[in-house]
Simulated assay, not measured.
Amino acid sequence: MFADYSSTELLSIFAMQGFAGLSLFSVFVLMAMGLAIIFGQMGVINMAHGEFMILGAYTTYLTSQFFQTYMPGFFAGYFFVAMVLAFLISGALGAFVEWAMVRHLYRRPLDTLLATWGLSLIMQQAYRSIFGAREVGVNLPDWMMGAFQVTDLVELPVNGLFVMIIALSIALAVYLLMFRSGWGRKVRAVVQNRPMAEAVGINTAGVDRATFALGCGIAGVAGSAFTMIGSTGPSSGQAYIVDTFLVVVFGGAQSLIGTIVSAFSISQAQSTMEFFLSGSMAKVLTLLTVVIILMLRPEGLMALKIRR
């Protein structure tokens, strides 16, 4: 596999594919953070998480169309507006779903899985009815086009670097929210001992709703990032939901750092192996490696230690 390349060419290929995997890493880490918050903090398996991502992607598409048509002079900054709208719309829908459905299914993981899977099918059909079955794409502003020339063979795309900065910034914001704020202490108290949290006056139902809304809102931002690397269709989210669960379980369901490390490792492995192998074989080898590691370390890379 490597025999046909010189050492210089191999280094350039690894660097090129590593940079190419940054956009995939950004989508993975945003999707996985949202899912880790919901699954790790609440124990809810949200099979509709990919559809919340696509809601954010369609919101970004509609925002770009609106700016192109009615506010072309401000088109260069539409993406920032789209991210905020994607977060708010996806988060609001997440809060409604938690109130209308999920709160009735706590401590019933199989029922929650089936209910959210049904929700994902409903959302896919809604997207198909509203936007059509064909995929749509966004037009990027001029400042997001092009790439930085790192070497003669390696280029760093501007949009990929921008999305990665956004992903890491949101990861930092989530860390500060979860571990350096009063609300984060309430969330961790509910996770560790729900009856005791209720006894000291914490509104656990409100914490659950806000947590679910936050996870869905971050998935919406992941949808905005997704528009940078691919076109958006009604079922595009299903292509990422398995990888996202893989990232969360591999990193440790309640570990933010583990989620980031896992997302980076899996995205870089897939991006590099896809150059030398087919895309399906790259996924198979990545999955096989993760399964072997989880057999040796079932709690994940960086599981959170909680005193029981």
Rank of each mutant, 00 (worst) to 15 (best):
Gly223Ile: 00
Cys216Trp: 13
Gly206Glu: 00
Tyr127Gln: 01
Met53Ser: 02
Thr211His: 12
Ile130Thr: 09
Thr59Val: 13
Ser278Gly: 15
Thr116Leu: 05
Ala225Pro: 08
Gly132Lys: 14
Thr60Gly: 14
Pro157Val: 03
Ile89Thr: 14
Tyr127Lys: 04
Val81Lys: 02
Ile293Met: 01
Ile38His: 12
Arg128Ala: 14
Phe212Ser: 09
Ser120Thr: 00
Leu296Trp: 01
Leu30Arg: 00
Asn159Met: 09
Gly237Lys: 07
Gly184Met: 14
Phe52Gln: 04
Gly21Ile: 00
Ala15Pro: 05
Ile260Phe: 08
Leu110Thr: 04
Glu9Cys: 07
Leu176Met: 13
Met164Phe: 15
Val154Cys: 12
Asp111Gly: 06
Lys283Ser: 08
Ser262Gln: 03
Ala303Asn: 03
Met16Phe: 13
Tyr78Met: 01
Met1Leu: 01
Ser169Lys: 04
Met71Gly: 04
Val249Arg: 02
Phe74Asp: 02
Ile166Ser: 06
Met295Trp: 03
Thr244Trp: 09
Leu22Gln: 10
Ala253Val: 15
Leu88Thr: 05
Met178Ile: 14
Val290Ala: 02
Arg209Cys: 04
Gln41Asn: 13
Ile257Gly: 10
Ala133Gln: 12
Thr59Arg: 01
Pro72Asn: 11
Arg297Met: 02
Met71Pro: 09
Gln270Val: 07
Arg103Asn: 09
Gln125Gly: 04
Ala76Pro: 06
Thr151Ile: 00
Met281Tyr: 14
Leu113Ala: 11
Arg107Asp: 12
Phe212Trp: 12
Arg128Pro: 02
Gln270Asp: 04
Asp208Lys: 05
Pro234Met: 07
Ile306Glu: 14
Thr286Cys: 08
